[in-house]
Nucleic acid binder design. Structure first.
Lengths: 188, 188
DNA sequence: CGAAAATTTGACATGACTCAACTGGAGTGG
DNA sequence: CCACTCCAGTTGAGTCATGTCAAATTTTCG
């Protein structure tokens, strides 16, 4: 896992052995079984989770009781409710494991301390956050200009493997389509 | 302006006089007249712009030739096309002044150098980027659960002054509504 | 095997868009 | 300072993509 983390970090910054050790030792290995929750609505999201292996979804529930999936999390991604994590406020999202999932997680207080000790950590998370922002912006632009059908087609093309791993109604939710309508689209 | 910048920065980190000077001196004062472009589509967005005063819009143009407004920029906000800025890629957005606007802008190369010299700068922009991300996420959630009418009502309530400063068709675009439909909504 | 969950199907409803025409105000130039 | 143009905003008719609801069918999995 250290190996994996190290490789990931090296995409962004150069950590020396000492820095890597310090960071790695601040992370806790935490495994979640399928359907378990990393974060629940109404509770504070105390951790950032680095996914070593597995699959998560981040979602919330609207007035009518429908789940809205905001994001899937896979290998080599960080997941967290950043607003809750940052402000110690109650999360309005759930984060749930869709498969047995192994994470390295770090507590907010721990991370805040580490920022002092490892200077490059600021840079690492600045860059990660920037990339995250870019990803969201791109997604927004796609959604703005594509029809439901186009979104689905694009998704299938971009992530063919996801179709196997995730039930269709969740993909519908992620694509902002009702499951019935997605079904109709697929039938052509 | 230095005063204003200093006050803004202090919301995030403590810069000493020297650091503030160094940062401030790397910024260039640049004014734009109403309707002038800070960034044009197809060109690289070379700067981050800190708005001292005025108003900008960030938008792109879809296949049908319609403008889609992504963001308004006001006093004390940074605007840039982060993807283009980061990767030196061509911008797919325009950024335009809607009023006479004064900015402090910094070039990418300059900023990259400064990150080495002022360590806290990494932290400053990490925090700013995080907040930006949170803002986008919140917006996305609102848009997901509200009807066009509700979005408009919420916008009017949240930013009553904007209604004066920005033509209605731009607000419609920002809210992802056609101008005709917004007009009909207003008529009740 | 049987119950619960996921997917499909179909009838119907509707929010929002398109297009085209009209109105009114603001600016411009002669 | 009037006449003319241009642009923003409005109105209305017709349409379409997508949603809702309810029931039937299929799949999953204990």
């Amino acid at each position: 896992m250290k190996q994996k983390l190290s490789k990931y970090i090296s995409r962004y910054v150069d950590f020396n052995t000492q820095e890597l050790d310090l960071f790695f030792n601040s992370l806790e290995v935490k495994k979640y079984k399928k359907k378990e929750y990393l974060v629940q609505e109404g509770k504070v999201c105390k951790y950032k989770y680095f996914i070593i292996d597995g699959l998560t979804r981040t979602y919330n529930i609207d007035q009518k009781g429908n789940e809205k999936i905001i994001q899937f999390g896979i290998e080599n991604w960080w997941v967290t409710n950043i607003e809750s994590f940052k402000n110690n406020s109650k999360s309005n999202h759930y984060i749930q494991a869709l498969e047995d999932t192994t994470t390295l997680r770090i507590k907010k207080e721990e991370l805040d301390m580490l920022y002092q000790k490892i200077n490059k950590l600021e840079r690492l998370f600045r860059l990660i956050t920037e990339n995250w922002l870019i990803a969201i912006q791109r997604r927004n632009e796609f959604y703005l200009k594509l029809t439901s059908k186009e979104r689905y087609e694009m998704f299938v093309k971009a992530f063919p493997n996801f179709i196997q791993r995730v039930p269709q109604y969740m993909i519908a939710s992620y694509l902002e389509i009702t499951p019935e309508y997605l079904s109709a689209l697929r039938a052509n």
